[in-house]
Structures are given as structure tokens and as C-alpha cells.
Amino acid sequence: MVLRKHTSEQAKTGTSQNQYSDKLLENLPRLSDLLKREPIQVEKLVAEAIRTKGVRKILSELDKVLKGLGDVALDLLSSLAIGRHVLIMGPVGVGKTTLAETIAEILAIADPPYIEVACHSHMTATELTGDIDIAVALQAGLDHPLAFIPGPLVLAHGRILILDEINRLNPYSQAALLQALQEHYVYIRGFRIRSDFLVIATSNPAEYSGVYELSEALADRMKVIEINYPDREVLRGILEWKSNALLEHLGVKVPDFLVELTTNFVTLLVQDSNIEVGPSIRSAIFALANAMSRAWLEGREPSINDLKVELVENMVSTIRGNFSSEQEKKEYLLKKFDEALIIAKRSYKR
């Protein structure tokens, strides 16, 4: 009896688990549904979203996440609204990916609003399109939700597809992407699935290492928006705002002087001709926050030396330039920091 009860209980929980996973399975798209897809004019959806939200509101929402990119955002919106794919280009850590994600989220043309792919050089075409699992198909039939696992190109139907670091995409996967852009169909083992989407790609400028060139046909379909380093004042605002946001839960606030100092340091590096790949703003923010949290740990006031150490440690791996060794680079950065310190002190006295 006891044993039986136990088994029935087990069966009960088992079925509930099954029901739960069945629900999940139901949410997965079936191949037959995918084949019935209707064309969607994504650019119309975007234009509709811009119209209902209003440009001002979109920009003000964007301002909560990223500052100083209003003009760039308008460039992005205008090309999305006419169905032109976009390539955002700029140095590391100026907010390319964040901009793409935020704009897609604000527009919210579908749920989820965007599909993101982090491109890498070993990506295969099937990774982008998805493939039919023959084993599942043989056992459960082709229309079983698990028989065909759709890739991002298929999932992005009616949405925005964010291709992060598209310069790392190899020519094979570029071809798959090109076909989807050109024909609006994705081919999987002879099945033709409709897929309409708008691409926002991000890329580092081509002189950076580990990069494939975009094929001509693909490049021809893209508009290039360049993001550069922000102006000094805007940069200062960003650093202050973001580092304080990181430190909010610690209950500390970054002193004005340290922000000024970091701003000077970053601007000096950006203007320096010895440096090819400049500092990332992200790393500057984290360096500021790191210096503060270090001081918080030890229960003392933050010192300039803390910031110096953190800045160099945070940036040394991203900066590339005319240096023969890592040591030389480090020393150069330390030298630049001292310069920045002198400038900051001078302007602070005034």
C-alpha cells in the first residue's frame, strides 16, 4: 500500500512536471507555423512606433541610459524607419551596443523587441539560421517543436536583429546573412521560412585586429553611423553620472576632483598620437568606481594614488599603440596621468 501510494505521488508530480514542460514546448515555434509566416514590413512598424511615441519622448528615454548621443540616435531612427540596415562604428566602450539595445527596447515593435547575436570568427551559417535535428525528427516527426531549433535569423522575424561586433563575422556566415537580407527568406534543408528584420550591427573600426572585411554586397546594404569620443564636458557628465550610479549601494560619492582628473586623463589619451586604440569610457567609469570601492573597503578617503593604479590597471589591456612592450605602455600611461594631474590641479586652483 505504502509503496503504491508513493509511486502514485511520484506519478502525480511527474505529470505536473510534464505539464509544465509541455507548456514550454507549446511556446516553441513549430516548423509548420514558421512556414506559414506572413511578410511583415518592419520599417512600417518602426515608423509607427516613432509616430506614437514621438521623437522627443524617445530621446528623453534614451537620455536615461546614454547621454550625448541624441544626434546619433536620430540618424539611427531615420534609417530604421526607411528600412535601411545600420552599422554603428566606433572605438571600444563608447556605447555602441547599449545604444542599439536601448533604441530597440524603446521602439518595442515586438516582444521581445530584439534578438542579439554576439558574432565571433568561428560562427557557422547553421548557427545563424538554425538546423533540423535529424534524431528528433525521426522519432517525434518533423513538426515536433524540438525537431527544428530556429536560429537568430529566423527568430528575428518582425524584430530588430542586433549583430554585435559584425567585423568578426567570417565570410561563410556573412553569406547566410546576406541571403536573408536579400531574399527575405531563410532556407533550411529545403524549407523556406520567411524572415523580415532590420539589422543594427556594431563594429570596431577596421584597423583593429582580428577582423574580417564585410563583403561588398553586404556592405552596400548598410549605412555607417560613426560614434566618436564625446566632448570633454559631456564625457565629464557621463563619468560622474555612471560611476556614482555604480557606487550608489555603497553610499559613497565620487569627489569632483577625481572626476575632473579622469576626464583629463581620457581626453589626453584620445588626443595622443602615440596611441592607436584609445581608452574605453567603460573602463574609465569602472576605474573611478574601483578606486572608490577600494577606499571604502579600507575605510578611508580615496586618494589620487588609488585612482592612478586603478586607471592604469583597467586600461592597459585595451589601449594599443606605438609601444615596444607592456612595461613601456604602463610607464607611458603613468606619465600621462601625471600630466593630467598637473592640468587638473591648475584648473582647480582657478
Partner: peptide
């Protein structure tokens, strides 16, 4: 695309 884009960008202003 440039023509359409410029036009729409002007409208956005």
C-alpha cells in the same frame, strides 16, 4: 537609401 534617409532625417528634426 541615402535620398530616403536624408528626407526622413529632416522630418525627424
Amino acid at each position: 537609401a541615402a535620398a530616403a534617409d536624408i528626407y526622413f532625417r529632416i522630418l525627424l528634426e
